[in-house]
């Protein structure tokens, strides 16, 4: 069976990642240009939402993997 090599080819993956970085750059420029309608004062800060999203994601990954898992993980047959 012929396989679709789209994501097996590192070049394609690189292109997609570069396209994504470009999209992020556009978002950052738009953030500086577009008028904002903030309700809370911190929403005025440049790239507030982006920074918050990035930090929240990293917190979730590391918090769950290195704190929660350490405390709560058990073998799969724990309740058997």
């Amino acid at each position: 069976m012929k396989e679709d090599p789209v994501f097996d080819n590192p070049k394609n993956v690189k292109k997609i990642v570069m396209g994504f970085y470009l999209f992020l750059a556009v978002l950052m420029v738009a953030d500086l240009i577009l008028p904002k309608h903030p309700f809370f004062p911190w929403e005025r800060y440049p790239f507030f939402y982006g920074v918050y999203g990035f930090l929240a994601y990293v917190t979730i990954v590391f918090g769950s993997q290195y704190v929660l898992r350490k405390v709560l993980k058990r073998n799969e047959d724990y309740y058997d």
Binding site: L24, L27, F47, Y49, G50, Y52, G53, F54, Y57
Partner: peptide, 8 residues
């Protein structure tokens, strides 16, 4: 922004 930078 929120979601894309989380994807980043």
């Amino acid at each position: 922004q929120l979601l894309s930078f989380a994807v980043l």
